[in-house]
Design a protein around this nucleic acid. Sequence first.
DNA 1: GTCAAACCTCTTGTATACAAGAATATTGAA
DNA 2: TTCAATATTCTTGTATACAAGAGGTTTGAC
Lengths: 225, 225
Amino acid sequence: MRIMGTRIADTIRERIEQMIVTGEFADGERLDEVKLAEQFGVSRTPLREAFQSLAASGLLTLEARRGAFIRHPDFVELVEMFEVMAELEAMCGFRAARRVSEQQMRDIGRTIEACEAAIAKGDFDEYYRENETFHHLLYEASGNSFLAREAARLHKRLKPYRRMQLRVTGRMPQSMREHRAIYAALEKSDSKAAAATLRQHVAIQGERFNDLMASYRQMAPRKAG
Amino acid sequence: MRIMGTRIADTIRERIEQMIVTGEFADGERLDEVKLAEQFGVSRTPLREAFQSLAASGLLTLEARRGAFIRHPDFVELVEMFEVMAELEAMCGFRAARRVSEQQMRDIGRTIEACEAAIAKGDFDEYYRENETFHHLLYEASGNSFLAREAARLHKRLKPYRRMQLRVTGRMPQSMREHRAIYAALEKSDSKAAAATLRQHVAIQGERFNDLMASYRQMAPRKAG
DNA sequence: GTCAAACCTCTTGTATACAAGAATATTGAA
DNA sequence: TTCAATATTCTTGTATACAAGAGGTTTGAC
């Protein structure tokens, strides 16, 4: 990809995006243009461009003549989004099973081990980072760069809520087993198994559904969902 | 969805979007801010906001300090995009087979007939519109509003290229048979059949691959693909 | 005391002015 | 003539000024 010259608007966009995905804003919160501009030491112009861009990615909502709002998806929409995410990841896995290179397999193997090591250490932030790398490697391994970008985009958008899920105890060992199963499926070039395992890994169903719902109510008590 | 007050930026966005998806701009063309602003009778500000929004949707590319460019996907990327589109539509079909309402089935049936009537009349524009409605109804029938939005988004982005495909002769009867098959699968609540037929219907493979490639070379001769 | 209407303030939307980087033309030398 | 360096022009990026709508507040009537 082409290296872009430094535009303030782009910098601002990334900073705000970071703030959003780390859950810095509450649901329904309005992002004050003048306050943020002041805070970043820029004018409203680049800030508004950043808003536009973020809104198009779905990270915030622009309401005409009312402003930019953080609108967490309601519970139903969140489940819908995870449903699509699961399918995109399954699609990546399906294709990756046939196309993944040896180098990519080594990289994926390494992140799996890093995830397990992080859990052993109890370092959740590191687990989180490594897990993210694991999934991004899978997207790339699909061999479909458009698919990889779209998957990464939705992955980012779900970030605050995935984090929420991870807080739930007891899921880690299961998650680790799934990582291993995905790896095995890729190694055997078993497209269907890779897809099915990934779909299972990401999907919100069974116990995980209840876990998510519980965390969700805690995080966004205003909405019924 | 909330009705938004009239913002010039939004209007401009839609007008430019329309121009893009109807293929009004050539590949690599730069969209001149001042010229367009003049043409629309507005200042550069709302125009630039529209650019940001369009860029985020992938309809144009912003290059820092160089401007907004129409960058048609190269052939490989186009095939990748259709691959994802096929999967999204399959996903919609899979879910729709279980969830579609009777009213929705009637609407879908009507668009199928309208498509066939349009072909009989040789009215390609009308066929095109009705076909678009057919697919949008399917997205909605999936029961997953997020999926429906994402599918519609990609559908829009592929619009110029789908049109290209349709010019190829002889595909229409096959396409019509597929519409009927999709309808039948939905009627039987056969998720797998609905998914498979839709995937087949949208995917670029076999003869269709060659057709697309031929049209593509004609449309965008600069790129090798 | 409550409701409604007018007014005021605050925020967003748009236009314009200014700054800075790209692209291009021009000039000079080899 | 060709290449390179510099100057000029043109376009984008950012800041600021201005316009207009939304929300809240105050005032008045019932």
